[in-house]
Design a binder for these strands. Structure first.
Lengths: 226, 226
DNA sequence: TCAAAAGTGTTCTGGATACACCCATGA
DNA sequence: TCATGGGTGTATCCAGAACACTTTTGA
């Protein structure tokens, strides 16, 4: 911003600043998002994404990480800024500008309810109930972003455990994108990309054992996945 | 955000909220951005993108539109949210969280200095001088976004006048992307996409007259341009 | 007549898609 | 032995990239 008006800024009213975090994982054969129960205010009793106000002097991203850990126990997470929502009426109590983040974790186990805070629950992303504030809108943006990035980045690594089979990886893609992929083409593409390494161990199950793989690099990269 | 802490929010310190707008146009054979001179504060005398504080009760996007018109006279502009910058040290005077927007206008003529505000100047985007605050960082994000969207949307329409030749359109692409495009492939692609209509009039110049075209739809669409 | 931009089609190549059969295992 | 998912290769198609000559005009 420019200098104009800032001197009087400490006097002038400006909206509150908050963060909200949409956390996705794969569980029970579906893409799921973590919600917390709203305890106070007009929306009490409904569900919302975890978040909180950004204190003076803290980077919003740091707020997101801190609130995430405090409310859900989740840390070491893939986190990226999604978009900022600033409609004055999005929260009926006050004008709160919310910087939304979207996060990916490898499994539900990462989240542990913290009794100091509200109840936690994982919800399937398709068919979310009506959420507090404008959180259904935020959810829609987050899902759109996730689907898009699945196609041109390797961020799926942050949804996967340390080792997995190709079938499991393909299933994750299919669950999120909502469509079937051709198995041979999928595997061929992964082979060409060279982002996986075979572990030369196998997952035993009710059927033929499957080769276990791991990502060679667990950091965001742009790739032409689909 | 969740309800926690909001009751005490009006007491608690929270950052200020501002918007900054990166406005691009094509002029003098280059991609240019509009800057205003900073008049007050530690950054006085340097250049920055136009912007201002978001008042309580106003949508940040509305603030961007209003400030844009007030400071530069620009209205009816393509505007989209870019990203939010929240580093507490980005403005040395106070913690100001800035929601950055990026805008496209069809020509320099859109901007008229408003003497109530600071001086205006269009700068070529390659080789911008050091700007106030973190505005060089914002510029880099905006340019990256512009280049990306040029490839998969039709937003170039908002940089073009009502009528133009194919050569002029191609030049805009080349200036922004920083590389040459094959003329025959470029024209073929546009023909296939069907986003232009020939006006059956010609631009006369020092050489062979060129057919004039216009966009059939002047609204954002996703297309596979490149 | 010359310089400069406008206008136009075909070939080649690489990536995406579609597709079917055998294998290894536990039940 | 059977049901189930694991594992593999080839043919086709289409879009993107490469590429050169003729036309029209003003100077």
């Amino acid at each position: 911003m420019t200098a104009r008006g800032l001197r009087s800024a400490s006097l002038r009213k400006t909206p509150l600043v908050a963060v909200d975090v949409v956390i996705f994982t794969i569980g029970d054969g579906a893409l799921q998002a973590l919600l917390v129960e709203v305890k106070k205010g007009p929306a009490a009793g409904s569900w919302a994404f975890p978040g909180g106000l950004v204190p003076l002097g803290e980077t919003p991203e740091a707020t997101a990480i801190r609130e995430l850990r405090a409310q859900t126990g989740i840390s070491d997470v893939y986190l990226e800024q999604l978009r900022t929502f600033g409609d004055p009426k999005r929260d009926p109590r006050a004008h709160v500008v919310s910087i939304a983040y979207f996060a990916l974790v490898p499994g539900k186990g990462s989240a542990q309810p913290n009794d100091k805070y509200a109840r936690l629950c994982w919800f399937p992303v398709v068919g979310l109930p009506p959420l507090a504030y404008d959180h259904n809108l935020i959810a829609a943006h987050a899902l759109e972003r996730l689907r898009a990035k699945l196609e041109y980045t390797n961020i799926v690594y942050s949804l996967m455990p340390g080792e997995f089979t190709l079938g499991e990886l393909q299933e994750v893609y299919e669950l999120i994108l909502g469509r079937r992929l051709d198995r041979r083409n999928f595997r061929k593409k992964l082979h060409v990309l060279g982002i996986l390494k075979p572990l030369h161990r196998h997952r035993r199950g009710p059927h033929r054992p499957a080769q276990l793989y791991a990502f060679t690099r667990r950091e965001p990269m742009v790739i032409e996945m689909l």
